[in-house]
Design a protein around this nucleic acid. Structure first.
Lengths: 277, 277
DNA sequence: CCTGATCGTCCATTATGCGGACTGTTGCTG
DNA sequence: CAGCAACAGTCCGCATAATGGACGATCAGG
């Protein structure tokens, strides 16, 4: 259906994003993708030529390259800048709770961690790095995102999720449906030790002006005797920030609609720019 | 040399980034790339499946998609977040000067506008949109970036630049070498009406801790009787912010070096993540 | 200095992507 | 509103571009 080479290249970019600063070796990628080594190597080389992938020549580790970031930045006006918009919220939450705040973007049937801020509390909970991809359903924010989908769509997604969730514990899988149901009522989700034992997560979905979940905001903290009490506090704070962020999106969209108004359909050749091949 | 399909896909992504919110039609892309329509269409479809490209079904305009932004965000820890780091600088400059502040990232032999802030001055100078790609040499910041390269390398780059600069005025091309020479002395560059008549730009390069230029910061304003005087004021402000930003990069790098220290070479299989294909 | 792991390259084979030709759609014009 | 022009999208036979088996290079550890 798609173009084979592009499918493979994108898969590589996803894996490399997921590996973050750590990076990945050629064989790891090879095994992850189930392709022959020369194939992976050739695609990597091509991506490197374009700067989308970089390679530490000492360790032979492959990572996402500078051009991946540039591409993202240059696409930001098209979507909205989730990362920038959530900056304030993340600082406030980290400050007020002392816990770890995590911002993820929804990417198809996965969430990708795109920012993280640690509060002052001495025990830091770093369950995910920036770049980490996890299937929907893993983590509190993820559950909240599912709950933000229209019920039918959510059911369909959950059904398709069972396979990628194979590598996660049975308990997590079984908890998804009830958790989502609960989250639909309360507006937030809780993950109590399901992803990592003794870690509690609370999360909300971030929706664009049409109501479609585009990201998640979550707080992760260590489980102790007082954590049950904290959950509802965290949830209140998250809901407050969720409202602020979603309002910011709405405002941005309004501002844009004004300038664009009835966008005329184009007709002729315009710019004469990129020096690209 | 590269993989044909990837080269083409990346070229498409660059063109679409360059077209910004406006977007591009299939035929435009076709002509820009010099490929047959079915080929462009097939690659676009594949990129759309991955969410890297979106298509307004009403107008048939193609734009960069949400996943392009996600990819960028998830790669940010690897490079540094130029956009976020420069936020403060941009606000201050827009505030203090009232003019338009432009932030670009260096992308091979081009610069890409990644952020823009308009000051309060009623005549807004919007020469570039976020996403716009221009060859190095076009714009003040661009000249400053060339000046930040080692002299030999700059010469080589400038030589290779003459072809992509074909579509720009003769005067601009002839001014590059002397402008760069001057910028090497003063630390900033000026573009007086070369890109767009009656628009003056002042710019500085933003260098990573190794001294390599990774971006540019510039101020664009309307040319009037007082603009000659303003240039040096703008330059001072830009140099101040340049220092702040580059210091921030150094600090981030130091902080990172501590946590990583002697990064051990990896050995075994690690995560079992992406649900990709 | 050998062993076992990985990285990178070559090149014959063939699957994969290419693009000419056709169909469907939209919007203008007489 | 028929007729035209310009564009979007699809099909399928052909040939080119990507594939992957095999080889050599490099490096860490014993």
């Amino acid at each position: 259906m798609g173009v084979q080479t592009i499918d493979r290249a994108v898969a590589i970019l996803h894996w490399l994003g997921n590996s973050g600063e750590q990076g990945m070796r050629l064989v790891e990628l090879q095994r992850a993708l189930g392709l022959k080594r020369p194939t992976v190597h050739r695609i990597l080389s091509s991506l490197m030529e374009h700067g989308l992938v970089s390679n530490d020549s000492r360790t032979h580790l492959y990572r996402l390259g500078w051009e991946a970031a540039v591409l993202g930045w240059s696409s930001v006006p098209v979507g909205f800048d989730l990362r920038e918009t959530a900056q304030g919220a993340m600082s406030r939450l980290a400050e007020e709770t002392g816990a770890t705040v995590v911002l993820c973007a929804c990417s198809r049937r996965e969430t990708v961690c795109i920012d993280r801020k640690a509060g002052s509390y001495p025990i830091k909970v770093f369950t995910v790095e920036v770049g980490t991809r996890r299937p929907l359903g893993v983590g509190a924010g993820s559950i909240a995102a599912l709950a933000a989908l229209p019920e039918e769509e959510a059911d369909a997604v959950i059904k398709g999720l069972m396979e990628p969730l194979q590598s996660y514990p049975e308990a997590l899988r079984r908890s998804i449906v009830p958790s989502v149901r609960l989250a639909r009522k309360t507006g937030f989700a809780v993950s109590d030790g399901l992803v990592l034992p003794t870690v509690i997560g609370v999360g909300v979905a971030l929706r664009d002006p049409r109501g479609v979940p585009i990201g998640t905001l979550g707080i992760a903290s260590f489980k102790d005797s007082a954590s049950d009490k904290r959950i509802s506090d965290y949830a209140q704070l998250l809901l407050r920030e969720q409202a602020k962020i979603e309002r910011a999106f709405r405002d941005k969209m309004m501002a844009r609609a004004k300038t664009q108004a009835l966008a005329p359909r184009p007709a002729a050749v315009r710019h004469a720019a990129p020096a690209n091949r």
